[in-house]
């Protein structure tokens, strides 16, 4: 369904990305020349102090913010060429997003939340597929619960099931455990890496937790809108933590 235009090439390509936003105090340079390639299937952590531009980078990768200059290619598609509705279609088909604050729709059950991307994609088997996906994150018994009836960890696992439901090429997770305590957080991270492995999805994960960053193949450090460090992790996949499948 989502065949890459450049098989074997990098899934994400950023070329001298700049983002300047106007504010009351004048223009602010939030991203200042970011160039980066991420291969298909890679798990990359993004670390850096608060305000360094991590979330902004995620927004650009998700086609939710247009850079002031520079190029963004996802799966061979130049996002600069797309209008907003095409960007939405690209997100639906190829990009999954997990937020720090879950962002489940409060008026829908867990099952309905997971089914949203399928319904947007006009799948007839939306609810069957959504139920199966809920089972893979261990929430089969919570299908009919509303977000307010779920714990934070459970809500985030529903959000993960939702983000992976259409088998995206790229998964963006912005501090997915930021609102969770340690034990619940590691359960959620296990869940995330499990899904990453199942779907072979490229993972870009913003985190403050060195232990979580350790589980990725690669770590990028942002500072003041610039990449100040980009390194392969020694243990990464070898440790195999979180690989259950």
């Amino acid at each position: 369904m989502t065949t890459s235009l450049h098989p074997g090439g990098p899934l994400v390509m950023l070329d001298d990305l700049q983002l300047t936003l106007g504010s009351a105090a004048g223009p602010v340079n939030i991203l200042r020349g970011i160039s980066l390639e991420i291969g298909a299937g890679e798990a990359v952590s993004v670390v850096g102090p608060s305000g360094s531009g991590k979330s902004t980078l995620m927004m650009v990768l998700g086609g939710l913010e247009r850079p002031s200059s520079g190029k963004v290619r996802i799966d061979g598609v130049d996002l600069g060429d797309l209008d907003e509705d095409s960007l939405a279609r690209l997100r639906r088909a190829r990009i999954g997003i997990v937020f720090q604050s879950f962002h489940l729709l409060p008026t829908m059950t867990a099952l309905e939340n997971v089914a949203i991307p399928l319904e947007l994609d006009r799948r007839v088997d939306a609810f069957t597929a959504a139920a199966e996906a809920l089972a893979t994150v261990g929430l089969d018994h919570r299908r009919m619960h509303y977000p307010s009836q779920l714990s934070g960890g459970e809500q985030q696992r529903v959000a993960i099931a939702r983000a992976f439901i259409l088998g995206p090429k790229l998964l963006l997770a912005d501090e997915p455990t930021g609102n969770l305590d340690g034990a619940t957080g590691s359960l959620v991270i296990d869940c995330l890496f499990d899904q990453h492995a199942r779907h072979g999805t490229t993972l870009v994960l913003v985190t403050h937790d060195p232990a979580i960053a350790e589980r990725c193949d690669r770590q990028i450090r942002l500072m003041d809108g610039r990449i100040v460090e980009d390194r392969r992790m020694a243990r990464g996949r070898i440790a195999g933590i979180g690989r259950t499948g």
């Binding site: 939710l64 279609r89 962002h103 949203i116």
Partner: peptide, 15 residues
């Protein structure tokens, strides 16, 4: 927030 969430999930403005 609902609309923003749906956009992130791939709903177009038109839809």
């Amino acid at each position: 927030v609902t609309i923003a969430t749906l956009k992130c999930l791939g709903a177009s403005n038109r839809l």
